[in-house]
């Protein structure tokens, strides 16, 4: 599945001149269930990431196959991190079991967070230094 960068660029909450921006192609892989939707959140800076309430960019995609291609363009300079989840039952949240362990798929930029939630330090990336990133849902 491929969405045009225009849609994403238009969704960004800030503007910047072309000379200060970067682009990165993000691929979400290992999507297992065919139901529900993929919720994608891009955060800019640690504070934005840690607050987790108002991402710089929040997008929702229907599931169409086991991967999803998201080209991000015109990103202003800075450090970013991504959270992705697969809301398989469309209830708007990441479901968990009685111990609080996720029962739906999720992932982070850099595939960070080996033991669960990733810190910004582990998930951060600078789009000026990368052209593509694969996030494997776990």
């Amino acid at each position: 599945m491929k969405y045009t960068s225009l849609i994403l660029a238009a969704s960004l909450a800030w503007t910047a001149s072309a000379s200060e921006t970067s682009s990165i192609d993000v691929t979400i892989s290992n999507i297992k269930a065919s139901s529900g939707q993929i919720k994608f959140a891009l955060f800019r800076g640690q504070e934005n990431y840690d607050n987790n309430s108002s991402p710089a960019l929040a997008l929702t995609f229907p599931v169409d196959g086991d991967s999803l291609h998201i080209p991000l363009t015109d990103l202003p300079a800075g450090e970013y991190a991504i959270r992705v989840m697969h809301d398989e039952n469309n209830n708007g949240k990441l479901d968990t079991n009685l111990l609080g362990m996720p029962t739906e798929q999720y992932g982070f930029s850099n595939n960070a967070g080996q033991f669960g939630p990733a810190s910004f330090a582990d998930a951060r990336f600078n789009p000026a230094e990368l052209t593509e990133m694969q996030i494997r849902l776990r």
Binding site: L99, Q114, F115, G116, P117
Partner: peptide
Amino acid sequence: MERRSFIQILAMLGASA
């Protein structure tokens, strides 16, 4: 879920270099 508890849950899975 508490972030800490989730990390602890998955820490049982042990990994690394």
